[in-house]
Design a protein around this nucleic acid. Structure first.
Length: 411
RNA sequence: GCGGGCGUAGCUCAGGUGGUAGAGCGCCAGGUUGUGGUCUUGGAUGCCGUGGGUUCGAGUCCCAUCGCUCGCCCCA
């Protein structure tokens, strides 16, 4: 054994882990396509300004969690900690602000320098959907419905609850922020240390605190609803109406805020209690200012991202591997004919394998260990008659079939 | 960045008060030189995370360190 291990916070996806991972991505890709979303693949590292500009100066993601380094040319580049900013950058870079809306799906690795924990890694993977170019509440509802359908299709919708809130427009948010600051400042000395810091830097985040001593003040805090402008309130009401139309169950939670600064209006999280501290499985909202931050024209947008590791942990089981047919030659003379059969099966779309060495007994053992569904046994006596012995592993029964009939038999 | 728990065979884990390392599973071989899974017999495998200290003697006690893990924080 070597002492070389994967870097802290990274891990290998092998066997069942990878099958779960792939199942999540494949399922999401299929549903996103049904909603008219097209997949984009953007670079996993970007000019540091793409993230520094967009995510907000106060977020931990920017201030202490980014993998940022100077490349050999002296440019400051950053491994993407999330992908919404990169998608917006790509939209602008490719001149696609002229052809809106763009409905984008993506899947890939993200990087954050954090203390690893259950459902939290330094290299982790997200899928996401971004609908760029519509300011209509229908867009919000459609994006959320896409996420809900995915959880349903994965069989984990019952493990999660959709929590919905609005952050209002700029005017609503400023008024609300002032009200919150006034409320928490009145109880400043009783707050946790962390929340006193939040009061200075990002008062909305106090609402997110898990600190028990903050709980009574959070419960007593004003909600944004009293501070919404009529337009913002109407927008929020329409999003809810569409969600009901789509049959997406949700629970209003006025304490939901977003970690990153670019959000406004709709904010939502699909949360679960099954993953310990990392309960948020999918989260997103509206971010009408971000495209402009990337140097494009003011462009409304809404989207979400979901953690593949977290979704994988919730899956009841990994999809099974399709069982192979094991082709087994008996004796050297039978090998060429066995290879012909092997390739014929594969080219007929059947998963087929042949061990590289070993006698009949050993090859049978190997076939069983690899969970083959059947063995095709070819010896001199079979070849002389143009047939093969077909042993079905599930039933244990063995029958004789003409070689030409094999592909049809296993199809 | 801060706290708790844990590092013994490929995996899961036993190893009161210090005496020179074990089980189950898995793996390999035989029982069956053209038949797996079941059964049965036998076998291999360990810098006991790492470094230092105490001791005649350390898997066991002490210190340090690294790693994993759970929670805080943050977030998907």
């Amino acid at each position: 054994m070597t002492d070389l291990q994967p870097v802290r916070g990274t891990r290998d996806l092998i066997g069942e882990d990878q099958r779960r991972h792939r199942h999540v991505v494949d399922t999401a890709r299929g549903i996103a396509a049904c909603y008219g979303f097209d997949e984009w693949a953007t670079p996993i590292f970007e000019d540091t300004r793409v993230f520094a500009r967009s995510l907000g100066d106060t977020s931990d993601v920017v201030t202490k969690e980014m993998y940022t380094f100077a490349d050999r040319g002296g440019e400051s580049v950053t491994l993407r900690p999330e992908n919404t900013a990169g998608i917006c950058r790509a939209l602008v870079s490719n001149g696609l602000t002229q052809t809106l809306p763009q409905k984008v799906f993506y899947a890939g690795p993200m990087f954050r320098y954090e203390r690893p924990q259950k459902g939290r890694y330094r290299q982790f993977h997200q899928i996401g959907a971004e609908l760029i170019g519509s300011a209509e509440p229908l867009a919000d509802a459609e994006v959320i419905a896409l996420g809900w359908d995915l959880l349903v299709r994965l069989g984990i919708a019952g493990e999660t609850v959709l929590e919905l809130n609005t952050l209002g427009d700029g005017e609503s948010r400023d008024a609300y922020r002032a009200a919150l600051v006034a409320h928490f400042t009145a109880h400043r000395d009783a707050l946790s240390d962390d929340s006193r810091t939040r009061l200075e830097r990002n008062p909305l985040r106090i609402l997110d605190s898990k600190e028990p001593r903050d709980a009574p003040f959070i419960a007593a805090a004003p909600t944004i609803f009293a501070h919404l402008t009529p337009a913002a309130a109407a927008f929020y009401a329409t999003v809810q109406r569409h969600l009901r139309r789509f049959g997406v169950p949700f629970r209003e939670n006025p304490r939901i805020v977003r970690g990153l600064d670019y959000y406004s209006h709709t904010a939502f999280e699909f949360v679960t209690t099954a993953l310990g501290a990392q309960g948020t499985v999918m989260a997103g909202g509206r971010y009408d200012g971000l495209v402009a931050e990337m140097g494009g024209p003011p462009t409304p947008a809404v989207g979400w991202a979901a953690g593949i590791e977290r979704l994988s942990l919730l899956l009841p089981a990994a999809p099974a591997l399709t069982a192979a047919v094991a082709v087994i030659p008996v004796g050297e003379a039978a090998e060429p004919a066995a290879l012909d059969v092997l390739q014929a099966l594969r080219r007929a779309g059947i998963r087929a394998e042949m061990a590289y060495r070993g006698n009949l007994k050993r090859r049978m053992e190997q076939a069983n260990r690899r969970q083959a569904r059947a063995a095709v046994i070819l010896g001199d006596s079979e070849l002389a008659r143009g047939v093969a012995q077909v042993k079905d592993f599930a039933s244990g029964t063995q029958t004789e079939l003409p070689i030409e009939a094999l592909a049809r038999h296993f199809a």
